[in-house]
């Protein structure tokens, strides 16, 4: 079995990122869009942690990769809270969660 390298982790991160981007563009449920954002952030986190790993590379990013990953996790928590509040407000005002119906600003 070939040894695991940074590129393997980057491939997993790329699949997660693309799945998240497609989730954001195709889902009509606002919460589905939010889940896409979470997938994208987590795909980026896998890259940061893989680049910071001393096991995978001799000259790695070091602990900075893990610091950035922790900041991303915390900011993702805050982002999820605000986005959820917006989605609930939208649901209260329009009695729908379908983002295609959010066209109040359309000229």
């Amino acid at each position: 079995m070939a040894p695991i390298t940074v590129a393997h982790y980057l491939a997993v991160g790329a699949v997660m990122f693309v799945a998240g981007v497609l989730c954001m563009v195709t889902k009509r449920n606002a919460l589905g869009v939010l889940m896409g954002v979470e997938l994208v952030l987590n795909g980026a986190n896998i890259n940061f942690v893989a680049f910071g790993s001393k096991l995978l590379r001799a000259e790695s990013l070091g602990l900075d990769g893990q610091f950035i990953a922790l900041f991303v996790i915390v900011l993702a928590a805050g982002e999820a809270a605000v986005a959820l509040a917006i989605a609930l407000n939208f649901y209260n005002n329009h009695t729908t969660i379908d983002v295609d119906r959010a066209d109040d600003l359309k000229g």
């Binding site: 942690v49 910071g52 001393k54 096991l55 893990q66 922790l70």
Partner: peptide, 11 residues
């Protein structure tokens, strides 16, 4: 689980 494998247990 992948994070554990890269050695980033805290993350």
């Amino acid at each position: 689980g992948l994070f554990f494998l890269t050695g980033a247990e805290f993350v």
